[in-house]
């Protein structure tokens, strides 16, 4: 066990942000948290990382756990001169070869000397992920790691996260508002809405009533859509085309994410 929450809750400003959260994460396991805006996903992740301490229940970490964190929000203001390479060494040592490798994994090796404050949203997220990987963590927490990344890049990054999990055998806690991802390589899905409303394998969660009522009737076709694409992940765009959905095909070719129209995305 890397991390476990036992009936944990956080109370702030006269209300419970989350309450009664129990979960545990093992090495080599990918757990995905989904839920609407403000449902307490980030708060739960912070408890798992001991950034927040539960006001009720308990949070436990393996002693000396080596964690890597990609926060949902991170700003580098312009007063701070910070190159990408320096940022990679924020909390750990790294040789220039290791830094180069980590950047190459996320397709940002050309940015090594760029200033963090000048990166685009997608580039910034890739660098955040490269830094997290570089630490060779036992526990990797990713809070909406692909915000601002284009669709093809998104699929590549999720593939990378899965590779990293296999290579490092680390536990991964992934927060995502993209349902089609949840159906991907995740071992377990936890659906939050101030409390855990359902959890289990992607298939069980997707067919549960709580999930349907939280994400609407559109949620179920999303699973089918995804599973189809999963068979053809070497053709990330093509997956949608192959199901013969004219509308979705047109949608993906215009650069939008497929599923926007079929309701597989849940904007958190």
């Amino acid at each position: 066990m890397l991390v476990s929450l036992d009936n944990a809750g956080v109370f702030r400003s006269d209300r419970w942000l989350v309450r009664g959260v129990s979960m545990s994460i093992e090495a080599g396991e990918i757990v995905t948290l989904i839920g609407p805006n403000g449902s307490g996903k980030s708060t739960t992740a912070k408890m798992a990382l001991s950034i927040l301490h539960p006001d009720e229940g308990a949070a436990r970490q393996k002693p000396d756990l080596r964690a890597s964190y990609v926060p949902q929000k991170l700003e580098v203001n312009w007063t701070l001169p910070l190159t990408v390479n320096r940022f990679l060494r924020l909390t750990n040592r790294a040789s220039s070869r290791q830094m180069e490798e980590a950047l190459a994994l996320t397709g940002t090796d050309h940015l090594a000397k760029a200033q963090m404050s000048k990166l685009s949203g997608g580039e910034f997220q890739r660098v955040l992920l490269a830094r997290a990987i570089l630490r060779t963590p036992e526990f990797l927490v990713l809070d909406e790691p692909v915000q601002g990344v284009d669709f093809n890049g998104e699929i590549a990054l999720y593939k990378l996260i899965e590779d990293i999990r296999t290579r490092l055998n680390c536990g991964v806690l992934l927060i995502s508002h993209d349902l089609h991802v949840v159906m991907s390589k995740t071992d377990r899905v936890i659906c939050l809405n101030g409390h855990i409303c359902c959890s289990g394998t992607p298939a069980t969660v997707a067919s549960s009533d709580e999930f349907k009522s939280l994400f609407g009737d559109q949620a179920a076709p999303g699973l089918a859509l995804y599973e189809h694409r999963h068979d053809h992940e070497h053709l990330p765009d093509g997956g949608v085309v192959q199901i013969g959905d004219e509308e979705a095909a047109a949608d993906s070719s215009s650069g939008n994410k497929p599923g926007t129209t079929t309701g597989t995305r849940v904007d958190a």
Binding site: K46, L49, I51, A67, S68, Y69, P71, T91, R135
Partner: peptide, 8 residues
């Protein structure tokens, strides 16, 4: 938050 999470 990041510094806390990564043991600094």
């Amino acid at each position: 938050d990041l510094a806390t999470a990564e043991g600094e």
